[in-house]
Design a protein around this nucleic acid. Structure first.
Lengths: 258, 258
DNA sequence: TCCTTAATGGTCATTTTGACTATAAAGCGA
DNA sequence: TCGCTTTATAGTCAAAATGACCATTAAGGA
């Protein structure tokens, strides 16, 4: 198919690459978007933070490898991790992205509800939830947080791509519920949107939109939650059967984009 | 990071994979969506049709390899091909997707205006534009077309994913202009939407929407085209500077999705 | 008990759609 | 040359969806 593979050329003569998966695992915690990072124990980038990930096993698909890593890094059993939302982001293959050798990495994005601190076995001991810088439009939260800006390899780029992708997918899918526990209030769901997008939304309008979208959420039988929360107890909902939002729930700043 | 990589494990000991790119190159021709296919000259799947593609060169990124293949298969110079729309679709890595060996393939989607028949050098001699089955909602066109339904490897799946992706992207990006020549009429642009989506759109409404979206298209200075076309000559437009559509141009069937 | 904080229930004006009608400007066949 | 057909364009009108607000309800806390 190319000058590099003329007729008669041996198609078995290929350049070998190492293939890995990298995970951008997000959660919403205390109105901040957090990503799961691990501290590197060896060169290159020893001591730097990086996205969790690892090599594919010989007969594993990237998806399988990603779910395995997800379970390990979050400290959940694979069985529990099987329910988490995981989707392929894109593949990074720049020749020099890893100084050691040629590594092609398939990146995945995972959305999880607020989990306990990562207590995985193995070297996940160095894993930690790191808050992402709050987007401009929101009131400035803790400005003293760890400066998340120079991860190992090209992981800054992967993280940025992942953040952008989930922001976009919240618009036209029911993905936001993946950040919530099994039962949640509309206020919590709205928090997800506000946190990921970095904007504030009008509560009544958000509620109207969500409830008007068939299959987005479904009410839990009886009672609202009372919790220690200050205001009026909110009704509880579960994720519905729909996967797409129609019409979409567009972020307000969309107008300003080019 | 895992039981397979305990502390002290040599991270350099990785399983080698072959890495390829596969291309789903689309064009709109005579109100049908066409994809570029090549006939395989050797086993496996000898004689079957497949998406064009090939191995990454030692120091090439997947993107570079994809653009190189695109130029070769379409018979365009790399310089010309550099202007074509090319974007990464996703990566396919099932262990047995290639019977010969472990191959991880990064798939790309390309959109091109109606080009002459592929006359590439090398083995692109077996390349051909193949019409895709017309989606249900449209009037049944030539039902006697080649049954595009069992491509080599997992290329059916890749093709289906690519088709779905471009359909979705037409909704919220200005991508449709990538199918058109440099100057085009609104009727031609509408054709793109109708062809990819397999629906009919209301002409005045389509026109209103496109012209109301700043940066989608811009009018060409003077005159409309007259061409042999039957009706009133249409005004000519060029692609504008915008890349996103806000609000999006939603396909009508959206409602029926889950 | 009064105040503050959220959740909910509504209203109203604007925007955006979707469905259509009407007019203009070619090409064609008789 | 005269209709007829075809495609482009200009509008109209009502329904649907959004954005901006106001009001009420039901806790928890000082």
């Amino acid at each position: 198919m190319s000058a590099t593979r003329p007729e008669g050329y041996d198609p078995y003569a290929f350049e070998p690459f190492a293939v890995t998966v990298d995970l951008a695992v997000f959660t919403v915690r205390e109105s901040r978007l957090h990503v799961l990072l691990v501290e590197r124990g060896q060169e290159p980038y020893r001591g730097a933070w990086a996205l969790p990930g690892g090599f594919l096993l010989p007969r594993e698909s990237a998806e399988t490898a990603a779910r395995r890593e997800l379970a390990e890094e979050t400290g959940l059993t694979e069985r529990t991790a099987a329910d988490l939302h995981l989707e392929q982001l894109r593949t990074y293959s720049e020749p020099d992205r890893d100084p050691r050798m040629r590594v092609v990495s398939v990146a995945y994005t995972a959305l999880v509800p607020d989990l306990p601190e990562p207590r995985g076995g193995g070297d996940a001991a160095h894993a930690r939830w790191m808050p992402l810088p709050t987007a401009a439009p929101l009131p400035a939260f803790g400005r003293g947080d760890p400066p998340l800006a120079s991860l190992a390899f090209d992981h800054d780029r992967i993280l940025a791509d992942a953040h952008e992708r989930i922001g976009a997918k919240l618009e036209y899918t029911c993905l936001a519920t993946a950040f919530c526990p099994r039962e949640f209030t509309l206020g919590e769901l709205q928090q997800v949107y506000e946190t990921v997008w970095g904007v504030e939304l009008d509560r009544p309008n958000f509620r109207r939109k969500v409830l008007a979208t068939p299959g987005f959420v479904e009410a839990v039988e009886g009672e609202p939650r009372r919790t220690g929360g200050r205001g009026k107890p909110a009704a509880l909902y579960r994720a519905g059967a729909a996967s797409a939002l129609y019409p979409p729930l567009l972020r307000p700043e969309g107008r300003q984009q080019t």
